[in-house]
């Protein structure tokens, strides 16, 4: 009988331990946001990524849609090549979207914010006809989809991380310039 109670206790102990590990993995850490299989990779070049890290979030309209997968330095272009993994369900991002590096809060983490572009779809045949009116060829619209970001596509429009020192530097130099102009007058 005592061995039975012992065994039950040990069973409870092991179960509670595993439950605690599971809770740490699911509730405390970011495991629930891992689903790496279904995503696709997109690259972008930045002049300055200071503060951005691998696994920093990638957001659009403030919603996290992916993560930074890798950061490399491109020796030819002398700039940083950032590979982002976008989750598979967000497969309708226009290919002329732009990427910027922002800071969450004043001192917070760096993240990449994507802004959708207009969609450089060449579906609508827009032309000026002889009478000078704009004619839109509606027929083409149905069979064509706007071109979207795919596995391996590159985001061309990028804006670098705002570095506080640079900003202050620019501000001061402009201030000085204006000062000079005034003295000239």
């Amino acid at each position: 009988m005592t061995t039975r109670i012992t065994e039950i206790w040990v069973g409870l102990f092991v179960a509670a331990g595993i439950a605690a590990l599971f809770m740490l993995a699911m509730q405390v850490s970011n495991l629930s946001t891992y689903n790496s299989d279904s995503g696709y990779d997109v690259t972008a070049y930045f002049e300055d990524i200071s503060g951005l890290k691998v696994r920093s979030p990638v957001t659009m309209s403030g919603v996290r849609i992916g993560r930074v997968k890798a950061i490399e330095f491109d020796k030819q272009r002398l700039s940083a090549l950032v590979t982002m993994e976008i989750e598979g369900e967000y497969n309708t991002l226009p290919d002329d979207s732009s990427a910027s590096i922002y800071t969450a809060g004043l001192l917070g983490e760096k993240y990449i914010g994507l802004e959708p572009g207009a969609g450089s779809n060449d579906c609508e045949e827009i032309s000026l006809d002889d009478s000078g009116e704009i004619s839109i060829d509606e027929s083409a619209r149905n069979d064509c989809k706007p071109s979207t970001l795919q596995q391996g596509s590159e985001i061309k429009l990028t804006q670098d991380s705002l570095v506080l020192e640079k900003l202050i530097g620019q501000f001061i130099s402009r201030f000085m310039d204006e000062d000079k102009k005034e003295t000239v007058k």
Binding site: A16, G17, I18, A20, L21, M23, L24, V28
Partner: peptide, 11 residues
């Protein structure tokens, strides 16, 4: 036991 106890402690 140790890792299980530590996990419980953290949780």
């Amino acid at each position: 036991s140790m890792p299980l106890l530590a996990a419980m402690f953290s949780a």
